[in-house]
């Protein structure tokens, strides 16, 4: 069960499951260190994307007399640099991986282990992020030198950023793990993945801060999960949101986390049954 139910036995179960994490993290760190070079190459794409948007929006702001939608070029720089960090810390690759796992029967062993496979996925994801910070942090320093960002950081915003980021990570992870399970039902998940990534791109705040989007798109983004794993933590950190907006954002994050966790625990058994009906 992924949705916590607060009985004594369930609490014990959760504690014992958490005890597996130190070893999972250590082991996945070893694996990820083996691939540090190829991982770093992979990171180039994630670094270039915000740089492209940052350049475009800075040019627009300058041509509009110094700012657009309340962002000056220096504020865009702060936004996209923070987004680069947030996106690095919250992105997942489970949707690509599931298809491969189902196709090649890698789930067989996962199903026969007395622990839910999602825990090892989380550990693998976290350790990859830790290793690749070695690429991201220098990149941020270089971007800082090139684009002169303006950060107005206050301690409260920074303090609120941490839970916003942690929940954003969990939300995105659970949400994408849920969608990834589609691989159990169809062998053509690439189409699903592609549509998801297009929507995610637009509504998460990666193309533009969502306040710059047409109002109905921004309104939709305000309810959907995408923004709360990327743009929201960024805007919290930069102090661009009112206390009300921040609290509402935390609320929506919690709702989506609960929904995704519930869907996983409901669908997981069914999809595993689907898998075991077909065999591998």
């Amino acid at each position: 069960m992924l949705v916590p139910t607060f009985t004594w036995g369930a609490v014990m179960h959760w504690l014992r499951t958490l005890q597996a994490y130190p070893a999972f993290l250590r082991i996945s760190l070893l694996s990820n260190l083996q691939y540090r070079a190829s991982g770093a190459i992979w990171m180039i794409g994630s670094i270039l994307e915000p740089v492209v948007y940052l350049t475009v929006w800075s040019t627009v702001a300058r041509s509009q007399g110094g700012s657009v939608g309340g962002y000056t070029p220096e504020e865009f720089a702060a936004y996209y640099m923070t987004l680069l960090l947030v996106n690095h810390l919250t992105f997942t690759w489970v949707m690509h991986e599931f298809q491969y796992r189902v196709q090649y029967g890698h789930f067989s062993f996962a199903l026969l282990r007395p622990i839910h496979p999602i825990h090892e996925d989380i550990a693998l994801n976290l350790s990859f992020k830790a290793v690749q910070l070695a690429v991201i942090l220098p990149a941020l320093i270089l971007l800082g030198l090139a684009f002169h960002p303006r950060f107005d950081l206050d301690p409260l915003s920074v303090a609120l950023f941490l839970p916003a980021l942690a929940m954003g990570f969990l939300l995105r992870f659970l949400f994408e793990w849920t969608l990834a399970m589609a691989a159990f039902w169809t062998t053509r998940v690439t189409a699903i993945n592609q549509s998801y990534f297009s929507v995610q791109m637009l509504l998460s705040g990666r193309v533009a801060p969502i306040s710059l989007l047409p109002s109905w798109v921004a309104a939709a983004a305000g309810f959907l999960p995408f923004y709360y794993a990327s743009g929201f933590p960024v805007e919290v950190a930069l102090g661009r949101l009112s206390t009300d907006q921040v609290l509402r954002g935390f609320g929506i994050q919690l709702v989506w986390i609960t929904v995704a966790a519930a869907v996983i625990s409901l669908v997981w058994r069914r999809s595993a049954r689907k898998f075991t009906a077909v065999g591998s």
Binding site: Q19, A20, A23, F24, R26, I27, S31, Q34
Partner: peptide, 13 residues
């Protein structure tokens, strides 16, 4: 990609 003993350790947990 990792030493055998680490896979064993994974089974331990």
């Amino acid at each position: 990609d990792i030493p055998v003993i680490d896979s064993f350790d994974r089974n331990r947990v």
